[in-house]
């Protein structure tokens, strides 16, 4: 399975970006092969609205099975749930730490968004 981490950098040692919709980058990590790939979220950073929806579609198309991030709002969560992508919220400071916690089974799957919508 492929995990997606939100990050401000481009490797496992980089900081975990607590935002999802307007995260700088997505780090796609393949649990089986241990390889990773960076997907830019640049086009969403200044989106007027719907950044979470777009970000969710981006990682669905990239083949993510799960998302590890700080916060995920209701619209993004709805898209991810429809696509069967699991969401894990964490306050881990780095991608590597978030990955370690995931592997140790310390992250629980989110049943709903953990922040309010920016609109309603």
């Amino acid at each position: 399975m492929k995990l997606v981490f939100t990050t401000t950098g481009d490797n496992l040692d980089a900081l975990l970006d607590p935002s999802f919709g307007r995260a700088r980058n997505f780090l796609l990590f393949d649990l089986e092969s241990g390889t990773s790939q960076v997907i830019s979220n640049q086009q969403n950073l200044n989106a007027a609205q719907g950044a979470g929806i777009q970000a969710a579609q981006t990682i669905v198309k990239a083949g993510a099975g799960a998302l590890v991030t700080g916060h995920c709002g209701p619209k993004a969560f709805r898209v991810l749930a429809a696509a069967g992508v699991k969401v894990y919220n964490t306050d881990a400071p780095t991608v590597a730490e978030a990955l370690a916690r995931y592997r140790a089974g310390q992250l629980t799957e989110a049943a709903a968004a953990n922040v309010e919508s920016h609109w309603a």
Binding site: A48, Q49, G50, I53, Q54, Q57, V79, A82, A83
Partner: peptide
């Protein structure tokens, strides 16, 4: 242009508030 529709490989999801 308003990101009111989302694609997840089937009938699009609508976000009417957008």
């Amino acid at each position: 242009q308003f990101n009111a529709l989302a694609s997840v490989g089937k009938t699009p999801l609508l976000f009417p508030e957008l």
